[in-house]
Amino acid sequence: MKNLKSKVGFGLVGFLSLTSLANAAVTADSATGNLSGSLDLGPFFTAFSLVIVAAASMWSAKKALSMFRS
């Protein structure tokens, strides 16, 4: 189980790094080196919500299965 958790953790970090690169509307001025732009936080909040819902689902399934054991 520990191995599965580490795989999921690494996958989540990889997913978030890809979404950060894809959704950053940042431009760089080559003359001055200034960065400008904005970052759309919608995908980050969506990914965070999905992780929370998945964790809650696993917890509730574990609780439901433990009720049948006893």
Rank of each mutant, 00 (worst) to 15 (best):
M1N: 13
F68G: 09
L16W: 03
L35D: 05
S49I: 01
L65R: 09
L41I: 09
S70V: 00
S49H: 01
A25N: 15
T46L: 14
I52E: 01
N3S: 06
G37D: 06
M67C: 02
A55M: 09
F48L: 12
S57G: 09
P43I: 00
A28P: 04
T19E: 07
G37P: 04
N34K: 15
S49V: 01
L12F: 15
S49G: 11
N23F: 13
S6I: 03
G9I: 00
A22Y: 09
M67L: 11
A61Y: 13
W59L: 10
A47S: 11
A54M: 02
F15D: 02
L50T: 08
L50R: 05
K63A: 04
T19D: 03
T32S: 15
M1S: 14
L65E: 04
A25P: 14
A47P: 07
L41M: 11
L41Y: 12
G11Q: 04
A22R: 10
S38E: 12
P43N: 00
A55S: 10
G42K: 12
F68I: 07
G9F: 07
K62P: 00
N34S: 14
W59Q: 08
P43M: 00
F15R: 07
M67H: 11
A64M: 02
F45Q: 07
G33D: 11
K63C: 00
N3Q: 05
W59H: 11
D40C: 05
V8G: 02
L41V: 11
L16F: 08
T32Y: 04
A22F: 11
M67W: 11
A47V: 09
A55Q: 04
D29T: 01
S70I: 00
A64F: 07
F44S: 02
A64Q: 03
S57E: 01
N3Y: 07
A54S: 10
A28Q: 15
S38Q: 15
V26R: 02
S49N: 02
L16Y: 02
L35R: 14
V53W: 02
S66D: 09
A56E: 01
L16H: 03
G37V: 01
L12E: 15
L35F: 15
S60R: 05
L12S: 15
W59C: 03
N34E: 15
L21Y: 01
